[in-house]
Amino acid sequence: MSFDIAINKRQGDCQIDVTIRSDSKLVAITGPSGAGKTTALNCIAGLIRPDSGHITIGGRCLFDSEEKIDLPPESRGCGYVFQDSRLFPHKTVLANLNYGAGRAGTQTAPLSLEEAVSLLGLAHLLERKPDTLSGGEIRRVAIGRALLSGPRFLLLDEPASSLDPERAEQIISAIEALRDRHAIPIIYVSHDAAEVARLTDFVVSTGG
């Protein structure tokens, strides 16, 4: 099974319960903002500890409250595209792209540096610092950085938002290609129903 996830997390007044059991290569999480979509991704990435539950992706257990398994984020092998991108401001675009490239113990990246650069249209940006990039450019670099880190699975938090329609279309096509050609499980968070419907039949709703 690609995904066997059950997360229970109380955050403030909000109780977040997410259950995903699917053989689908790509599952989507939708829901209104504030419903805990990003919290669920942070739990899967190991940045937040769930109160209880288990997380198994691609047959590999990352967290199990009963078995006392809780891998640190660096051992989970996730390629996480954050909603706020989080490029390293003191590093060039190229250094950002290469930051996770040397990750030990994981499979090779689904794309080479050259392929990622041409797919995402980054060739003219490689020597620039993030503070000189536009919002769409920052997002594309963040996607490239996650792909080039040799991830075992991808967490994409609204990857096509804040992009112009043409670039958004390119990104979604690229995600379709990743889904069809590579064996990387993908969790896709979006509020856009049409976008989600195009990518997968397996949709989980949070809150609301």
Binding site: A45, L47, P73, C78, Y80, D84, R86, R103
Partner: peptide, 21 residues
């Protein structure tokens, strides 16, 4: 921003490398 350290961790950096880099 601690979120940058979180991002480094998800990219495979342990606590020490995230601190140094």
């Amino acid at each position: 921003d601690r979120k940058l350290v979180d991002a480094a961790r998800t990219l495979g950096a342990n606590k020490w490398r995230a601190f140094l880099s």
